[in-house]
Design a protein around this nucleic acid. Structure first.
Length: 596
RNA sequence: GUCCACGUAGUUCAGAAGGAUAGAACGCCACCCUCCUAAGGUGGAUGUCGGGGGUUCGACUCCCUCCGUGGACACCA
């Protein structure tokens, strides 16, 4: 990687200079890690290292420091110059050619690295309640989570993707009660959902998605439903048996719908972990016993409390309520403990910002269990604002809403994923539905996909017969399919074929070729950084930049020409570009069409 | 009141690890297809980086404070 190489060469130079006592009072152990970065202005060169930070320690001005270090840099493939505290590197062709050949040799693995060192990561995200359809907010975490999983895998982590099914508790009863009302309605009885809060409207899911579930239920259970009604003629007060029957049915249907939609949305979980199973297996009780034995629990006001304040939480938390039931937190503590018991070294959760208060509690529980709470990393993502007809629309499960499914239908899978991933999760996402739907041509995803398709098109044209426009005669392809295959064969790749990239003396051709190669080469660094920062949005941004560089190259540098050597060299470059687009889009779970 | 995130161009957003004249996309204006995909490219306009202090040779970036926006502060899930 060029960036690393330059930083390393510079670090060696500093060490050598310091050993020769050229850097004043500078002590090597005080030297901060220096990074190479792209220059702000191409006049300065391609990359630079800022050595100003050594000035204070050495008691020498930044400009002088740079001057002193420069002759110690052993890097013949680059032209080195200094301006103020910057050491600038202008890369020679051999370095650039090396960048391309690495892509050709590694093809679909190009960009990958082993920073994860096979660490076992459990990535938990979406984890919706099975009480209704997934909404747009879930869509954000699905897109971000699945691409983060791809990214981490590409960076050498062993990732398991998990969905925690919140299928226990009151809400499930409410779901059952709500379905029962819908079933009664479908049976023809005149029943309405409570409308006011006094009547308990909050305890019902009155959105119309349960109508279809009710229909489905009656399809196969009509007699049963009528029997239920006969014995329980008050639909607002169903028996436990009815509620259980209804919630079980609704839960299964909802979960199935969620699974199918996520799978269609290119979000595939390895494990679907049911909260109910956690209770049934006795894990929750075991966890309480464990905490009890560690003396982390106490009784107060008829409830059992966890001393989470001992670990930085701002108040203690109830584990068993005074009615004997568990809180949501109790199961969640057991769940996280179970993750660690299953052998995961790193737990990454993606949560909506509305759950941020939970982080301290869960971390406290992990610490109380005697583990290091740093193993849990919670990525808090800001929520999604829906904008319809220029107005913000608040989302609510029990009201009318735009579901993820509706959105996908309007915007498409690629567009929705790219849009959801594109922005840092730290910022609230304004999702303008009208814009995304009506002006879908302007969606940035098309810009990137078009660039990929364009690269494919050049490769296609190169290997197909063409018509001579003047004589109307058939001409052979620029290169035969077989020859092209050999040209980019990783095993037999000849780096010196790339020399012809630099045969041209046309400024725009040289400039656009070089810019494209540098961008392609930096993909490796991008992957490292975005994996480290858990930031898939950086990939989306990178791909837009790469598309821009490629379009620029395309405009000024003709690939297919009469000069066979130059054509071959440029075809290799185009193929490398295609490969990087493909690798990047795959990480995002966005398709890479060959033509558009 | 306490905690978290955010506040950068008309709009939506980048500016990890302090550093060279603060960037992109969309929108607006003017150009560019006899030629590999014009869903493209080139050029142009637009900024008190929320305000005020501080640390530093140097601050969009770090610290303090104030203002604004969103979210969280349950024996709900």
């Amino acid at each position: 990687m060029i960036k690393e190489l330059i930083a390393q060469k510079t670090a060696e130079a500093i060490q050598n200079a310091a050993e020769k006592r050229e850097l004043g009072q500078l002590k090597l152990e005080d030297v901060p890690e220096l990074f190479a970065e792209k220059t702000k202005n191409p006049e300065f060169g391609d990359y630079s290292v800022n050595v100003s930070s050594l000035a204070k320690q050495a008691r020498i001005s930044p400009a002088q420091i740079a001057q002193i270090i420069k002759p110690y840099i052993n890097f013949s493939e680059a032209e080195i110059s200094t301006i103020q505290g910057f050491i600038n590197f202008k890369l020679g062709n051999s370095i650039l050619n090396g960048g391309i050949s690495k892509i050709i040799k590694e093809h679909e693995n190009f960009g990958g690295n082993n920073q994860g060192n096979s660490e076992k990561v459990l990535l938990e995200y979406v984890s919706a309640n099975p009480t209704g359809p997934l909404h747009i907010g879930h869509g954000r975490w699905a897109a971000v989570g699945s691409s983060l999983a791809n990214l981490l895998k590409f960076s050498g982590y062993k990732v398991t993707q998990e969905f925690y099914i919140n299928d226990a508790g009151n809400q499930i009863n409410n779901l059952g009660k709500s379905l029962w009302i819908r079933v009664c309605q479908e049976l023809g009885f005149d029943i309405k959902f409570p409308e006011t809060e006094e009547e308990g409207s909050k305890n019902y899911y009155s959105a119309d998605y349960l109508v279809n579930v009710a229909k489905k239920y009656i399809e196969s259970n009509k007699n049963k439903a009528e029997e239920f009604y006969k014995n329980n003629p008050e639909p607002l007060k169903p028996s436990d048996e009815i509620v259980n029957e209804m919630s079980g049915f609704a839960k299964a249907i909802m979960l199935k719908l969620q699974k199918d939609l996520l799978s269609k949305f290119k979000t595939d979980f390895d494990v679907w972990y049911s909260e109910t199973s956690l209770h049934q297996s006795g894990e929750v009780e075991k966890t309480i016993e464990k905490l009890k034995s560690l003396d982390k629990l106490y009784e107060k006001d008829g409830a059992l409390w966890f001393k989470s304040t001992e670990y930085g939480d701002d108040q203690d938390r109830v584990i068993i309520k005074n009615d004997g039931s568990y809180t949501y937190l109790t199961a969640d503590i057991a769940y996280h403990y179970d993750k660690l018991q299953r052998g995961f070294e790193k737990l990454i959760n993606i949560w909506g910002a509305d759950h941020h208060g939970y982080v301290a509690r869960i971390k406290a529980s992990i610490q109380a269990m005697g583990k290091n709470s740093d193993c849990l990393e919670v990525l808090l993502g800001q929520l999604v604002n829906l904008i319809i007809s220029g107005e913000q629309v608040r989302m609510g499960k029990r009201r009318k809403m735009l579901t993820l499914e509706d959105l996908i239908e309007e915007v498409g899978i690629d567009g929705t994923r790219f849009w959801m991933i594109m922005r840092s999760i730290d910022t609230t996402l304004d999702f303008d539905v009208d814009l995304a739907a009506s002006c879908s041509d302007e969606n940035p995803v098309f810009y990137v996909q078009y660039a990929h398709a364009r690269a494919c098109s050049i490769l296609r044209t190169a290997t197909t017969e063409r018509m001579d426009q003047d004589n109307k005669t058939q001409l052979p392809p620029f290169i035969s399919k077989e020859e092209f295959k050999q040209l980019i064969n990783p095993e037999k790749f000849e780096k010196n074929t790339l020399e012809f990239l630099w045969k041209t003396k046309i400024d725009k051709e040289v400039e656009s070729t070089k810019a494209l190669i540098l961008k392609l080469e930096s993909f490796e660094d991008l992957i490292q950084t975005s994996a480290k920062l858990r930031a898939p949005y950086m990939i989306a941004k990178y791909l837009q930049e790469l598309a821009k560089d490629f379009h620029y190259f395309y405009t000024f540098t003709r690939v297919l020409s009469a000069d066979n050597d130059v054509t071959k060299a440029r075809l290799i470059l185009v193929n490398a570009t295609r490969q990087v687009f493909l690798n990047g889009l795959n990480l995002l779970g966005v398709s890479a069409p060959d033509s558009m």
